[in-house]
Amino acid sequence: MTRPLVITDCDEVLMHMVVPFARWVDEEHGVLFRMEDASFAGALKRKECGTPLEAAEVWPLLDGFFRTEMGRQTEIPGAIAAMAAIGDIADIVVLTNVGPDHQAARGDQLAALGFHAPVIGSRGGKGEPVRALIEERRPSVAVFIDDLPNHHHSVAIEAPEVWRLHFVGEPAIADKVRPAKHAHARIDDWSEAQGWILARLAENIPAPAPQLV
């Protein structure tokens, strides 16, 4: 039987992102990041006039951050130790929406913390890449971890047998993000999340069919 599989996001799950990103866009681009709801793009406003950035302006800023500023990011407390414990019994793949251009840098970033795992730099919904990983690896049981509700919906559609944990490890935004409707649990602390994941792996049964409404 193949080993269990854990598919995890990186930003706000393994590494802090919005806080160092906010400092950088303020210092270098005159942009304020003030997250008042779950909208990331709507949180970016010009300092001089307060007007929100256009959607087309957001990705170039994110791309610039990941290209030159990933050294500003720090570990979500307990994340790497949890990955080590989980890695004793399961394979781990990092599925991160930094895109293919930053995939290698993300792997290097995590390796510098002592965490070595395959990294897939995707874009868009994560349901299809999760489905591809399940079909490739045929795990006995699988768990998906992400901070964004839309990815849990995507995975629920494409790979409903995968357990889905909604995790937002950045306290500055955790209370702005409602629990994902299509996740099986919402936990924002690794001391608790590790136990939940290990319990799902130990049970070794598929997730229940989701209610996609």
Rank of each mutant, 00 (worst) to 15 (best):
P206D: 08
G30M: 14
D9K: 06
A156F: 05
C49N: 15
A207C: 12
V98R: 00
R131I: 04
D91K: 14
D9Y: 02
R34L: 10
R3G: 12
G78K: 04
V119I: 07
H116N: 04
E75K: 06
A207Q: 10
D91H: 11
E12V: 10
I92C: 06
E12W: 13
A132I: 08
V19P: 02
A105I: 05
C10I: 11
P206L: 06
A22Q: 07
W59F: 11
G99C: 13
I187C: 03
R3C: 10
I173Q: 10
E75P: 00
R123G: 11
D63H: 11
R138F: 03
L44H: 08
V31Q: 05
A199C: 02
N150E: 14
V58M: 11
C10P: 04
P118A: 03
D37W: 03
L113W: 07
A85L: 11
V25C: 06
A183N: 13
M70Y: 01
S122Q: 10
L32D: 15
I86S: 09
F66Y: 14
D101Q: 09
E135N: 12
V93T: 02
F33T: 05
A156D: 04
C49A: 09
A209F: 07
H153V: 05
T74S: 12
K45W: 05
A79W: 00
V19W: 00
A183H: 14
T96G: 01
P52T: 02
E57W: 09
H153T: 11
A82V: 05
F66W: 12
G169R: 09
A41M: 10
A81N: 02
G195L: 15
F33M: 15
D147R: 09
E128T: 13
R137G: 09
F144E: 08
Q73C: 12
I173A: 08
P208L: 08
E57H: 14
M1K: 12
L113N: 09
R34P: 00
